[in-house]
Design a protein around this nucleic acid. Structure first.
Length: 704
RNA sequence: GCGCGAUUAGCUCAGUGGUAGAGCGCUUCGUUCACAUCGAAGAGGUCGCUGGUUCGAUCCCAGCAUCGCGCACCA
């Protein structure tokens, strides 16, 4: 045996051996209680980062623990087409390298490019996942956009449409003029920006705005019904006044959305380009008019400013207002938040558009009650059917549900699941297959990528077929993911599964935090502070990389990772390896672990074995409670400080005898088991080196 | 505005109603004897602040401060 564990050469071989021996698949004849997890599918946009590595480490620990305890264990791998992320990445590259847009290529040719990219990306990712030692059942690998998942998506869409919880309607949506698509509320990043805030004379009122360029069509003036300053103006009252492009008739609207404490307490509204204004307009059945087109340019309503892009228009309009004496004052240090697309950073321009939505308010009948999707999502967690860890995220989840609006699911992207709808005249057809007859036109849009992700726990198991896998492994045992996709994904899975299967997707949600750099900053390309998991695996081994992401990190908390920490864990792997090496070098002939009973008469040995049992029980309890970091630390501490530094050193001092050698073998073998979920490679190698499996069994398949 | 988290050794972080823990770093000593990717010994902490509960609080409760995060608002 070499002085150190040659992880560079050994890991791949061990992984292949596990896989070919079938340990990653639940045994067909097993009768243990099922334990199943779906891998949160990484986006096929490039490579894995440390967050993925943490996810893989945590899930693999859960999976290996379950497997060793005899559960019928299934962990399903897959990748996500990540519609908007993948498409925009390919678009960016296309423009950079060839100066072309997706429209220059056309839908078909562009999609071919995206698919090539996605495939390459997929292969890279799969290799990286394997390098981390993740014991996934590759025979069941899925892709969110493959044939089986596409069938599930169409079926889900149709059932939800037939059930009335999916509708097509003209509502205000978040439009990204840069990527030319809608995005959902959850995909928006609010960025603080300093700008000008203008006070304008609007008849007898002074109104405030940061966006004068949207104000051309303003013909409603809104104030709070209880605002005494404006009591003399009655709801519905009409006023003639001079505005940007001449006289207009304004109508007074009393609505509680107007905050008396903000500015002058009076505002005009632009229902076409603001969500709150849209709601006010809906409440009072007001007219809505589009001011800005889908490329971010002013429409003919702006007269001489028509065709101006927003930034230019704003300056020109302010000049005109000033000339007309309508500009009262300007606050030059106004800080407000601007909605941007979290992909690509384009500034969102709300627009009223005909889109597909999931209706979260509409009641439907379920188990004799009338409930909405909101109720369903809330009740599922409130009733305790699904447990969220750490528990504090339950509040976050409820808070999100309380503020939830209808979910816009159609996207004007090309890469993704096509909306399964066809139109002819005023007729709409929704189905899993195109309608018969001629003259039907297919919907051009695709679905939000989270729509297909929402089906993931059961689309991977064969739904809508009543497959054996579905019966056996659904609901899944645990859903393990990063807390920042609680809304995007976890909530949507609960929604989809609740509606379509009348079931829960998983029993427990375990949320992990963000892996940051050693100074606590997010790892990012622009800061160039990322630690590449693959580089660390090559340098220090997968075991060390995994362990560094577990130790000292409680559920849900962020962690600052440094290369020092990984190095420390590598030293621990070396320590394990050298203990094996010692036992191998001092091997006594004719002593096997089965002699253990004879040697255990010694009272010291009994107390050693008793304390080992105690540690085992503690580690088991920690793992059952999903306290992975405590389990890892306990195993680490016991191995290094008790086994290596005390028990083994004592044996060295007193000289090796058949009895104490047997004791060492016994304790060491137990340690390997306890450490295996965390550091699978070095423990497996040591197990083999000492022939603990007697040439038949691998550690991965041993009993806990 | 509503809510959440953090505050413990020089650094990164665990943890507990009863004498404070790990890794890294630091100091001193030690390698033929599994491992220097090691071992032994050690220095280093009013456990953010102020009250309260308690025989006893770093831990429980209340308030405050600082940092971070989520959600909502932003005319």
């Amino acid at each position: 045996m070499d002085k150190r564990f040659a992880h560079e050469d050994a890991e791949r071989g061990i992984y292949d051996k596990w896989e070919s021996a079938g340990y990653f698949s639940p045994s067909a004849d097993g009768n243990g209680e099922p334990f199943s997890i779906v891998l949160p599918p990484p986006n096929v946009t490039g490579e894995l980062h440390m967050g993925h590595a943490a996810m893989l480490a945590i899930e693999d620990i859960m999976v290996r623990f379950a497997r060793m305890r005899g559960r019928r264990t299934l962990w399903i791998p897959g990748t996500d087409h990540a519609a908007i992320a993948t498409q925009s990445k390919v678009e960016k590259e296309l423009y950079k390298k060839e100066g072309k847009t997706r429209r220059d290529l056309g839908r078909e040719a562009f999609l071919k490019r995206v698919e090539e990219f996605a495939l390459k990306s997929h292969d890279t990712i799969v290799n990286q996942v394997r390098a981390m030692g993740a014991s996934l059942d590759w025979s069941r690998e899925a892709y969110t956009l493959d044939a089986l998942r596409s069938r599930a998506v169409k079926e889900a869409f149709k059932r939800m449409y037939d059930g009335g919880v999916i509708y097509r309607g003209s509502r205000i949506v978040n439009w990204d003029p840069k990527l030319q698509t809608t995005v959902s509320d959850d995909e928006i990043d609010w960025k603080e920006m300093k700008g000008f805030f203008y006070y304008l004379q609007y008849g007898p009122f002074v109104i405030g705005t940061a966006r004068p360029e949207t104000k051309f069509g303003d013909k409603y003036v809104v104030m709070h019904p209880a605002d005494a300053r404006y009591a003399k103006y009655k709801h519905g009252e009409k006023l003639e006044l001079e505005w940007i492009n001449g006289p207009v008739t304004a109508t007074v609207i009393k609505d509680e959305a107007a905050d008396p404490a903000f500015g002058t307490g009076v505002m005009t509204i632009t229902p076409w380009h603001d969500a709150t204004d849209f709601e006010i307009a809906e409440r009072h059945s007001l007219d809505k008019e589009q001011i800005i087109d889908f490329n971010g340019k002013l429409l003919p309503i702006a007269r001489e400013f028509a065709g101006f892009p927003i930034a230019k228009a704003r300056l020109e309009i302010v000049k005109k207002l000033e000339k007309k004496g309508l500009l009262v004052k300007v606050d030059e240090n106004y800080v407000h938040r601007v909605a941007t697309n979290s992909r690509g950073g384009g500034i969102i321009e709300p627009q009223i558009m005909k889109q597909w939505f999931v209706d979260v308010h509409k009641k439907f009948s379920r188990d004799g009650r009338e409930i909405s999707l909101k109720d369903l999502m809330r009740d599922t967690v409130a009733s305790g059917k699904i447990k969220i860890l750490p528990e504090r995220f339950v509040k976050v989840y409820f808070n999100w549900i309380d503020n939830l609006r209808d979910w816009c699911i159609s996207r004007q992207l090309w890469y993704g699941h096509r909306v399964p709808a066809w139109y002819k005249g005023g007729e709409t057809y929704v189905g899993t297959e195109p309608p018969g007859g001629s003259g039907w036109e297919e919907d051009q849009d695709t679905l939000d990528t989270w729509f297909s992700s929402g089906l993931w726990t059961f689309s991977t198991l064969g739904w809508p077929e009543e497959s054996e896998d579905l019966k056996m492994y659904h609901p899944t045992s645990v859903l393990e993911t990063a807390y920042d996709i609680l809304f995007f994904w976890v909530a949507r899975m609960i929604l989809m599964t609740g509606y379509l299967l009348n079931d829960i997707p998983f029993r427990t949600v375990y949320l992990h935090g963000i892996v940051r750099d050693k100074e606590g900053r997010k790892m990012s390309k622009s800061l160039d502070n990322g630690i590449d998991p693959l580089e660390m695996v090559q340098k220090y081994g997968a075991d060390a990389t995994r362990m560094s992401l577990i130790m000292g990190v409680g559920a849900g908390s962020d962690t600052n990772l440094s290369e020092d920490k990984i190095r420390a864990c590598r030293n621990f792997a070396t320590k394990i390896w050298n203990a094996a090496r010692f036992l191998d070098m001092r091997r006594l002939p004719n002593v096997t672990i089965s002699d253990v009973n004879h040697s255990m008469i010694d009272i010291r040995y009994q107390s050693i074995l008793a304390s080992l049992e105690k540690v085992k029980a503690e580690i088991t309890a920690h793992l059952e409670a999903y306290e992975l970091h405590l389990a890892a630390e306990k195993a680490y501490d016991y191995f290094w400080n008790t086994f290596a530094n005390k028990i083994l050193e004592d044996v060295k001092k007193e000289g090796i005898t058949p009895d104490n050698y047997t004791l060492l073998l016994t304790v060491f073998r137990e340690c390997l088991k306890l450490l295996h979920p965390f550091m699978p490679f070095v423990t497996e190698a040591a197990y083999e080196a000492l022939n603990f499996g007697e040439g038949k069994k691998m550690l991965i398949g041993e009993e806990w």
